[in-house]
Amino acid sequence: MKDVNLKVISNKQIAKNTYESVLEGDVSHITAPGQFVNIKLEGKFLRRPISICAVEDNRLTLIYKVVGAGTEQMAEAAAGTVWQTLTGLGNGYDLTKSGDKPLLIGGGAGVPPMFELCKRLVKEGKAPVVILGFNTKDEVFYENEFKALGADVVVCTADGSYGTQGFVTTPMETVDYTYFYTCGPEPMLKAVFKASKTSGQLSFEERMGCGFGACMGCSCKTITGYKRICKEGPVMEKEEILWEK
């Protein structure tokens, strides 16, 4: 973990309510896909935790949905704006378990962490299959970017306005895979958990206080004990998950 100043290089809307910010600075403490950063915004007390979409040298790409005043402020930030950012938070995905043909399932705002993961798996010579789920056509993003990495990509929308009609679990039925990685809203995670035929890793979300393990705000119960989503998570192994809600 390191607290650094990151400069906004570009900031653009890429889908409905969805923005891509490219930041520049010391991102050397980011060690794994699935980790997140926590951004201090002018006038906001708590930082905003955002998952990592891509990291390369001294550049960091974040994709986020505007859901409230904080993300709205982020979306409006002009190039040159500096964000004080805690980097390298959370455990991230473990790539060593992927097997040759891992399945990556991203839903909505859970798509971004799949991108850096896919990039690294391809680099390791794996053949990832990617399923991207959205509510509707206007919300679809990064289909071509995933394809450009060399992955097999299936896009589905809940209303059928683009790609395959239905939820991510529909294409899951017909794909062969060695392991799965997923991130998305909790109902989707639960459905993927149930539909999955192999072991895998799921990334969870929770309202956080600090983002680095101090406040216990984001704790959850697992089979192996209490865990902090921000510190021992956000990525959990399928075998340790306890569904409570």
């Binding site: 906001k44 007390f45 708590l46 929770e206 309202r207 206080g209 406040c215 705000g217 984001c218 959850c220």
Partner: peptide, 15 residues
């Protein structure tokens, strides 16, 4: 959870 909420110049916790 959730047990954190942001406020003006502060926060709420219900840990």
């Amino acid at each position: 959870t959730p047990r954190i909420a942001e406020c003006e110049r502060g926060m709420i916790n219900s840990v």
